[in-house]
């Protein structure tokens, strides 16, 4: 099993993801350039990661241009074959823009960029992240200006009914409250998966919580869930 990490010209969490996977989780990682279009070395056991950053500057909408890159066309096909795809922050935005995940990420309700530790919890379900995390509350940093998850009522209802919400913002004790929501996301949604449970996206950065040197390793379980 190996990971592929896509590098867009404005990616800036690509090397962080590499460090977390290689140094902290001893995983095999291949870096993939956005202009290339060869994913033939990956099987559906593998996982393609879209890291955080500002893919193409994001002067239009976050992730709006990235979906048209040659590599994203391949990733869409890979996901449709059942391969695992995981997007963090800007990667989550790209997955929504490209239609692999439903909904959109809007500007934070307070209209400011926000970077801080937040707490998130998983509420169970039949996807690999739920099975690994087992409803634990995790401390994971966020860093975004446009992280307010939004979708129409019918989409939200179906996400909730199918247990596709993988993380909700909560307080340290695990209570899902308005105060613990850093961006105004609907239903405190911090991360979701698709209906076939092979494409995952989340705003918080698990790769920023994988090293003992940073005094927080809560993110390891999330990346580990994708490695098996």
């Amino acid at each position: 099993m190996k990971f592929g990490v896509i590098v867009f010209p404005g990616s800036n969490c690509d090397r962080d993801m590499l460090h977390a996977l290689q140094d902290d989780l001893q995983q095999e990682v291949i870096m993939l350039w956005h202009k290339d279009s060869d994913l033939s070395m990956f099987t559906t056991d593998d996982c393609i990661i879209l890291p955080g950053g500002f893919s193409y500057g994001d002067y239009l909408r976050c992730g709006a241009l990235a979906r048209f890159s040659p590599m994203m066309e391949q990733v869409i096909a890979f996901a449709n074959r059942g391969g695992k795809v995981f997007g963090v922050c800007n990667g989550f935005q790209i997955l929504c823009e490209s239609g692999l995940l439903p909904g959109v990420l809007l500007q934070n309700d307070h209209q400011k960029f926000v970077c801080k530790n937040v707490y998130i919890k998983n509420e169970g379900g039949d996807n690999r992240i739920a099975q690994k995390i087992a409803q634990k509350t995790l401390k994971i940093p966020v860093a975004h200006g446009e992280g307010r998850y939004f979708a129409d009522d019918a989409t939200i209802a179906s996400l909730e009914a199918n247990h596709q919400v993988i993380f909700r913002y909560c307080d340290e004790q695990g209570n899902v409250t308005k105060e613990s929501n850093p961006n105004g996301a609907i239903n405190n949604i911090a991360g979701i998966c698709n209906s076939t449970k092979n494409v995952f996206g989340m705003m918080p950065h698990p790769e920023r919580a994988c090293s003992d040197a940073l005094h927080n390793i809560d993110g390891r379980a999330i990346l580990q869930a994708l490695s098996n």
Binding site: C13, A20, F113, N117, P141, A143, L214, H215
Partner: peptide, 24 residues
């Protein structure tokens, strides 16, 4: 909080504050 203080995963102060910023 309006600055990304953690990108690069070198900032050790987030969870361990000190008088100067320490970057691994």
């Amino acid at each position: 909080e309006q600055y990304d203080s953690m990108v690069g995963i070198g900032t050790t102060n987030t969870n361990a504050p000190s008088d100067a910023s320490v970057i691994r």
